[in-house]
């Protein structure tokens, strides 16, 4: 059993005749910060979805935090994702009818054995204070700036204490200053939770903030 946060081996995924993805090997250590770069359409997002268990590979192994996710049943995969993997999206994808604190607490609604109300509230307050969101908790997404929305999205990804955080161009909608601030926050908070971070990005100015950069070479293989 591997101790890595993420271990991918001989992964193959194809979608019809037009798209195929092959990843011979990819490993991310606990608390490691890894950037995934490559041209548009090369399959970076697909790889993140395979790792998160949103998609299922035809061949290969995906092991997240010691758990083989590729062989899990749908429901078990969803449950594992909700509990152990944090996801941050380019469009933030906050629910517009929830306030910031309700968006932060949303992952608890999706897991079957959620902590009690007091503990949940404590976790939300804790993550909100770490991300500087205390004064914004009662606001809905429409009342937040882009940077504030991204901080809420980061908090939502981290609030359950995941071992692996996956980011799909999380700074794509932010200006350079806010993008750097968001990446710094992601790294700080992930480090506090001892979570590994794997981020797809096109923003090369942020690459110095990562421990390791993986260039995704076409649709074929991963070169480290």
């Amino acid at each position: 059993m591997s101790q890595a946060a993420l271990h991918v081996r001989d992964l193959c995924f194809s979608h019809g005749n037009s798209f195929s993805l092959s990843v011979p090997s990819l490993t991310v250590e606990p608390a490691e910060r890894v950037a995934l770069i490559g041209p548009s359409g090369c399959g970076k997002t697909t790889l993140l979805h395979l790792i998160a268990g949103i998609l299922t590979p035809q061949f290969g192994e995906i092991e997240v935090l010691g758990q083989r996710v590729d062989g899990l049943a749908d429901s078990a995969r969803r449950s594992f994702r909700a509990r152990r993997i944090g996801l941050v999206f380019q469009e933030f994808e906050l629910l517009d009818y929830l306030t910031a604190d309700e968006n932060l607490a949303l992952p608890f609604r999706l897991i079957s054995q959620a902590p009690n109300q007091e503990e949940m509230s404590g976790r939300v307050q804790n993550i909100a204070s770490r991300l500087g969101l205390q004064g914004l908790l009662g606001r809905r997404p429409a009342q937040l700036s882009q940077g504030e929305k991204q901080r809420v999205a980061l908090g939502r990804a981290l609030v359950t204490g995941p071992g692996l955080v996956l980011g799909d161009e999380p700074t794509g909608n932010l200006d350079p200053d806010n993008a750097r601030r968001a990446i710094n926050l992601l790294h700080e908070q992930a480090a506090a939770e001892r979570a590994a971070v794997l981020v797809v990005t096109h923003d090369y100015s942020l690459l110095d903030r990562f421990d390791r950069i993986i260039e995704f070479d076409g649709l074929r293989e991963v070169s480290e």
């Binding site: 998160a52 949103i54 509990r83 609604r109």
Partner: peptide, 8 residues
């Protein structure tokens, strides 16, 4: 979003 986050 809900499905991606793991909701059935």
């Amino acid at each position: 979003t809900l499905r991606r986050m793991g909701c059935p």
